[in-house]
């Protein structure tokens, strides 16, 4: 079953407060640009895990690949 980029965008933004996401993809492989205060002060590993955790076991399965570009922003 294919996944829409909008679904990924909505789920990232819903799960991580204050986050804005832009997602492109072909239904299986996706690229997401994500920014938000939740990433500030975290290591790269921790930043990526925060987003991976939104999708859990769907990654590598329903969502074949998710490439991430994460930018921390100032907490408001």
């Amino acid at each position: 079953m294919s996944v829409s980029p909008d679904e990924l965008k909505d789920r990232i933004e819903a799960a991580i407060p204050g986050t804005r996401a832009a997602v492109t993809g072909d239904g299986h492989h996706f690229e997401a640009t994500v920014e938000g205060p939740a990433f500030a002060g975290l290591s790269r590993i921790a930043q990526h895990k925060l987003v991976y955790d939104v999708f859990g076991a769907e990654l590598g399965d329903r969502i074949h690949a998710l490439s991430l570009k994460i930018t921390p922003t100032e907490a408001r």
């Binding site: 790269r44 590993i45 990526h48 490439s67 991430l68 570009k69």
Partner: peptide
């Protein structure tokens, strides 16, 4: 230590 996957390695 885990450094990361393709995105992180490329960025670094």
């Amino acid at each position: 230590e885990l450094v990361g996957g393709c995105d992180i390695v490329t960025e670094m």
